[in-house]
């Protein structure tokens, strides 16, 4: 009798799974929620608080271009915990490689905002998980609809991307006078790299095109770490990071990148110590 009851419970679960598979075939999220498994795999099943007082995760509601979806992580100015955030992990639940990036914040750089661009393969939840120095995790999430039309999370111009491989650019932006302290900087680092996902099979050879992507990017002002990024294939071609930090008066800004083939790229720029 208990066995029978259990079997019918399984049958009911199976049936509802089948039904829900059908009901969402036209639109909406996949019925299977990968997040619990991702919490286990990426965060070792650690408990998470609601992080909405600490961090904002901004993305468009729809991925306009599947290959280039802007995302901004913003630490809230009012939060006490802000200064204690040591890392932020960005997870795109339904992507083939959900862990998009882990940003480690330099202890003295006071990074308050990070923007980058990601690929979005599907209708998906996106999570940002901030870790504070007390070892606690704080999570926020948003939902992004997949792109329509002929947009794909793939290169638009593979030759041009190859030609840019290894190029690095640094740019400092003017900040509005009244925002933050006078030593707050807003800057951007771009790395020319195809960031190939390696997930596509060549139709003719039936071989997978090998993955080749930037898996680490580190940024310093003089010798003080500002930000380091462990990236994956969910980061768009030509990885691009725009961020705010507080200048320590350094005269140089340095970036080092490494890809999965072991190529190392690095560049150093003189910075305008006075801000802009």
């Amino acid at each position: 009798m208990p066995g029978f009851a259990l079997r019918s419970v399984y049958a009911a679960i199976l049936l509802s799974a089948v039904l829900s598979l059908h009901s969402v075939s036209a639109a909406g999220p996949e019925p299977y929620d990968p997040w619990p498994g991702l919490v286990q795999d990426i965060f070792d099943s650690r408990a998470m608080d609601d992080g909405s007082n600490l961090i904002a995760l901004e993305m468009p509601t729809r991925a306009e271009d599947a290959a280039i979806v802007p995302v901004t992580l913003r630490l809230k100015l009012t939060s006490d915990a802000r200064s204690r955030v040591v890392s932020i992990t960005l997870v795109i639940d339904q992507n083939p490689a959900p862990m998009a990036a882990k940003f480690k914040l330099g202890a003295d750089a006071n990074v308050s905002e990070i923007s980058t661009r990601v690929r979005i393969n599907n209708y998906t939840n996106v999570h940002a998980v901030a870790e504070t120095s007390d070892g606690k995790l704080h999570v926020v999430q948003t939902y992004v609809k997949a792109s329509g039309g002929c947009s794909a999370p793939a290169a638009k111009n593979a030759e041009e991307a190859k030609n840019r491989l290894g190029q690095m650019r640094y740019r400092q932006f003017a900040r509005p006078q009244n925002e933050g302290s006078s030593s707050t900087r807003e800057a951007q680092v771009m790395v020319g790299h195809p960031n190939n996902s390696g997930l596509q099979m060549d139709q003719v050879s039936q071989l997978y095109i090998p993955a080749l992507y930037v898996d680490r990017l580190q940024l310093w002002q003089d010798d003080s770490p500002v930000l380091s990024v462990e990236g994956g294939i969910s980061i768009s071609e030509d990885p691009n990071i725009r961020f705010t930090y507080v200048s320590n008066g350094a005269k140089t800004f340095r970036a080092e990148a490494k890809d999965t083939d072991g190529h190392q790229f690095s560049h150093e720029w003189k910075v305008d110590g006075s801000g802009m």
Binding site: N121, C150, A154, A155, Q200, M201, D202, Q203, V204, I209
Partner: peptide, 11 residues
């Protein structure tokens, strides 16, 4: 052929 290899299944 390359474009279809990279995008076909996604489409």
């Amino acid at each position: 052929p390359q474009a279809l290899a990279v995008r076909g299944q996604y489409y």
